[in-house]
Computed example of a mutant assay.
Amino acid sequence: MPDTPTYLAGDCGGTHCRIRLYDQHGNQLAEGTAGPANASLGLDVMMAAIIDASEDALTKLSSTQIALSSLKAGLAIAGLVNESLRRKFCEMDHPFASLCAETDAFVARLGAFGTKDGALLITGTGSCGFGVVQTQSFYVGGWGFSISDQGSGARLGQLAIRRAVQAFDAIRPSSPLCEEILKSLGGTAASAHHWALTAHPADYGNFATVVFAHADQGDPVADQLLTEIATEIDELVSALVNKGSKNIYHMGGLSGAIHSRLSDETVRYLVEPEGDTFDGALLLIKEKLGLTNSHSQVP
């Protein structure tokens, strides 16, 4: 086991969990991946994915063998907003030498702006905005798929499935997008309903690429849905601006694809970041920020 510290930086989202290992100089050593690690899926599910991704990264190290128990971990965790979840996170057992974490928005903003003012808007599987203005911090959205997540991939997928079911019931006109989605869900509204009973946000988010593909082919329903999602993102940016944020970094799986549909007023506030989520996770560790879990199971 090396004497020098090895840092584990994690991006734990609703679609997948990515882990990167770094040496004490900030050089990346390896990367590992696993399934969804959103806190809203359950902390046990989340931690299992984090451990799987960490072990995947460890197997890719070229020489030095490093144990989980020697890693100093900093995690950006989607859905870690509920006070009860945050308290339970700080009390759960873990296999790392040390562990700190914050919401994915908090950590990504830290990577993008460091200690300077600025806001972050994530539109991936879910959505969340987080800003800091003159040491005051605030969130916009990020309250989970059931009541929030506007402008997200999961929201887009849900709207598309809803529209496909409406077409099946002859409530609204159909289109090639509606036909493909319904076929993939079993071909009937009843089969789509059965699928939805156990579907997670990432399952809905998987349909986002289908919508974009059909929009490129001129599908009117797909085009309408993307216009609706772009408007929701415009609203999120407007909320951040109204709270004092003038520099906003827009990131996430939808950010690039939807950019051309955003309003000119939105685009004028968007800026490029100084670093990414992994940079933020490293700062989280080194500056001892965010939530700290002292329940390491390392002997």
Rank of each mutant, 00 (worst) to 15 (best):
Q28L: 15
G275Y: 08
G151D: 01
P36Y: 08
T188V: 03
T188Q: 10
V81F: 11
Q297N: 12
G118V: 00
E55S: 09
S146L: 15
K243S: 12
R172S: 14
T64W: 09
V271F: 05
G79A: 09
T4N: 10
I147Q: 04
T59M: 12
L120Q: 08
F212L: 07
F207T: 02
Q136D: 07
A167I: 13
G142C: 08
F113W: 00
A53E: 01
A199F: 00
S62L: 14
A67I: 03
K243W: 05
A78D: 07
S63H: 09
V241Y: 15
D149V: 04
S296T: 10
E91A: 15
S184C: 07
V298Y: 09
C178M: 09
I285D: 07
T188E: 09
N27A: 14
C12S: 11
D3R: 07
Q297I: 14
D276C: 08
L262D: 01
K72F: 14
A208W: 02
V107W: 04
G144E: 04
A78C: 09
G253V: 02
D117L: 10
P173E: 04
M47W: 03
L291S: 05
A112S: 12
H214W: 09
R261C: 02
A281T: 04
F106Q: 06
V211R: 05
Q217F: 10
L68D: 02
C100T: 07
P220E: 06
A101D: 02
R268G: 06
T103I: 05
R87S: 11
P176A: 13
F212H: 05
P173Y: 10
S255N: 02
G13Y: 01
S255I: 01
L282F: 14
L197M: 15
T6I: 15
G35W: 01
V221W: 06
L85Y: 09
L262A: 11
F96C: 04
I229F: 02
R155I: 00
A230H: 01
D219S: 10
A160V: 06
L21T: 02
V267A: 12
L262G: 04
V237Q: 07
F89G: 05
L185A: 13
T123A: 15
L120K: 10
P273I: 02
E102W: 07
G13H: 01
A189Y: 03
L289H: 05
I181A: 13
P5W: 04
L289D: 03
A257K: 13
G141N: 01
E272I: 12
